[in-house]
Structure formats: C-alpha cells, structure tokens
Design a protein around this nucleic acid. Sequence first.
DNA 1: CGGTACGTTGAGTCATATCAACCATAGTGG
DNA 2: CCACTATGGTTGATATGACTCAACGTACCG
Lengths: 235, 235
Amino acid sequence: MKEEDSFPLCDKCAPEAGSIFRHLLPAELEQLNYRKEFRKFRRSDVLYREGGRISGFYCVHSGIIKVFKTGSDGKEQIIRFAKTGDIIAYRSVLSNEAACTTAKVIADCEVCFIPADILISFVKSNPVFAHELLKLACHELGEANTFITDIAQKTVRERLAEILLYLVRDFGLDENNYLRISLTREEIANIIGTATESVIRLLSEFKNDGFIELQGRRIRILNSRALENIHNHLA
Amino acid sequence: MKEEDSFPLCDKCAPEAGSIFRHLLPAELEQLNYRKEFRKFRRSDVLYREGGRISGFYCVHSGIIKVFKTGSDGKEQIIRFAKTGDIIAYRSVLSNEAACTTAKVIADCEVCFIPADILISFVKSNPVFAHELLKLACHELGEANTFITDIAQKTVRERLAEILLYLVRDFGLDENNYLRISLTREEIANIIGTATESVIRLLSEFKNDGFIELQGRRIRILNSRALENIHNHLA
DNA sequence: CGGTACGTTGAGTCATATCAACCATAGTGG
DNA sequence: CCACTATGGTTGATATGACTCAACGTACCG
C-alpha cells in the first residue's frame, strides 16, 4: 500500500534519528516494527496526561512535544522537550508508576506508540539495551540536577539567557539565526519558572541590548556570547 | 578476625536495608562481598567531589550523606540525602560521566565502596537487577520533576513546610516528635533554594504559630497537618 | 581564652509578581 | 463581510517576598 511506505521503519529510523533503538538486535527491531503503532498529532494535542496509567510509550519521529507538570495552582512547569529520536513516557513505563507529566504537541508530529511490555522485554533480553536505557535515564537525572540548581540559585534574567542558549543547542538556528522552535511567551515563562510579563520585559531588554531580535514569536540570536555571560553571572 | 565480624555482609544487609542488591543472585552477592570495601566516614568528610572521575559507587550501611551541586557562586544546592540502603554515585558510574555532585557526610556513616565494573557486569548479567535499577533511576527522575515544579512555583514558606514534611517521611521522628535528622539552617536553606536568614525567620514564624518547636538544631513537629496545608497553599 | 561556626535580628533594597488596561491577530458564526 | 471572541503580546503602576548587609549573640573546641 501507498500508506505503508510513509510509515517510518524502526530499523531505518533508529540509526538516523539516533534513538535508543539503535542498540536493538535485528530480530528485536523487527518485533518493534510489528508491534508499534504509527500516529500523527497536531499542535496542542495531548499524548498522555499526568495521573493517567500508561500502556505504552512514544518514540518521536518528527515534530516537537513539550512535557510538563501541572503545579498546584494549575500553572504548567515544562520539564523537557522531545524531538526526533527522543522517547517519552518511558519513565512511567519502567517504574510502573502513573504518569507524573503531561505531553502536549508544540509542533505537529509523527510518533510511534509502543506497548509497554515490549520495552520491559527488551530490557530483560538485551543487556546492552538495558545499559543504554540506564545511561539515558541517568543522563536525564544529571540534567534535572543541574536544572534544580539553576532554578534555585540564578535570577530570572540569568535563567532566560540560559534557556535561549539551551534552545539553540537543542533545536538549532535557521540560516538567518532564528530559533527553530517557536514558543509562546507563556511557555518560555513556564520553563524558567517565572511570570509571562517578566519574560516579555526581559526579552525586550535583551533586544534593546542588541543580543537578540524579535519578530513576533520568532527569536533571532545575535550575540550568544553575551547571553553566555549573562547566564554565567558575568554581566 | 574480630574485625571481620563487624563488616556488614551484603547478603544480610541487602534485604534488611532494602537495598537494590536484594535483587542479586546468591553468587552475585558473594562476588559483591568479595569485591566491596568497607569504609567509615565522619561528619563533613567528603566521599567524592563533583567533576571527579568515579571508580565506583557507595552503598550506605548507616549514617546520613548529603548530595549536592555547587552553583556558580559557590552556593551548595542539596539534591538529595542518602541513608541506610541507599546507593550514591551510581548515576555517574552508569552514565560514565564525571560526578555532577559532591557527597558529604552529615551523620557519621559506614558505607561499602563498590568498584564500577561490578555494577555494569550485574546490569549485563542480571536482567531483573537491571530493571530494578531502571526503576530506581526513573523514580528519582520523577522526584526531581516534582522538585523542579515546586521550586519554580511555590513560595519559600511553602517549600519550607514541604521540606519539613519530607524530612519527617524520610527520616522519621523520635518518641518526642523530634526530627531524626539534624541540619544547619544553612543546609535547610540549601535544599529549598533560599537564604539562611529566610529559613530562620520562617522557622520562627512556624514556631510562633505553634506548628513546630525549636531546640537549637533540633526540630519538633507539633502540627504536621498545618504544615501540609501551608505546603498546599491552603493557608 | 580566643577562635570559629552557627544562629538571630533589624533595616533597607531590589527583583519579580501581580493587577489592570490595552492592542493585534486570527478564527468563527450569523 | 463584519461583529464577536479568544488567544497572545505589551506596557505601566504598584505591591511585596525574599535577599543582602551588618551587627551581635551563642556555643563549642582546642
């Protein structure tokens, strides 16, 4: 079928996207291809909701997803983003806990849904894969620790500079130095833990200082070195 | 030898302390007992330092250890505590990254030092153990996410109430409702990400409200329900 | 006995949150 | 086609939580 062709096959997708599945054996990849379900989502669709039980996890083929927790007063706290090659919800699957986050689409995406049991079975059957998964979780843990320290100790201004640089690193710039991810001011605020108005004011401060340029939601990075300095408390 | 007797044997310690090693097979436990090194540390000793390469990890037999990151201005951010049955530094060992935290003794402790290679080999040889280790890492990741959300969204007052409850849950109360962990005001500040003076002021506010009692460094919990309410923004 | 680390309190300041008003844009339905 | 509504962005005024700085008290320790 024509349709079929457009499905990403894991044994092609895994190495290209650099996903964790590149550590699977051919037979396991075949099994994965057989069991997975290809799905498309559009902006603001929700993949799963915190508190819910999870029957599987997702591997992102294209698009961007934000993963957030809802605070007691209903405010979103964005924990991380997932893009091509990333997997989400694996935490809940592996620890067998209810989802502690919600996943919502930021840029239209294509993902594979993979039943929970298959992940567990790979962990049990493929030690290298298990180790890689551990590396992944431990790496994320390290990043979480860094984030905790920053959010606890740095000013909003410093955190904003940091997040811009993080977005550059993770999503890159286009040919005109515009960030390849588009976020609302509120979403930016929900990453660094501040008010929307503060983000707006600080962004326009950065603009006036000539570090960035703003075209609506698009952000152009002019002087990442300066942002680096702000982040490191040197300015 | 007399000395030998005082060494904790992992096959006894693991089930009692509820450590991750309870999932090992007898032969593996034996290997662990053979390879591990028993060590004692006193208050303010450092087990390992951030940035350093790690040749092994630690399983805590007794005592309390604080694990923290040092912020850019030298301020400690306490990430977690480790007590009987907990393992530390496993993150760096598994992800093969330099230590991103420092571990310092809060209450005199006895630990086993375990060479890195043995952990990796268990992950490879024992799928159940690997899975349990994944559960552990994923659970910690979930806790980190919650902490990020709290620190980003809650007031210092709310966080202080929360941390007191967390310390009750994790370390318990003695017969007179005193916390079984002793921290300096500065250490408390370094958990919740605030200034020492703020902790002092808020603690004495809680005292005046009759929620707690203070005897130097010892904290007596009188009304945990009230603290619960503060934490949940209900008061 | 002096030193060092910890605890406490007060005063002043500042970064950031909050509240309110307003504008721009786009989608919707009559 | 146009009012209508919702969403997101911006700006200003004001309030305040929390930090900083400084001084001083306290307790333990060699």
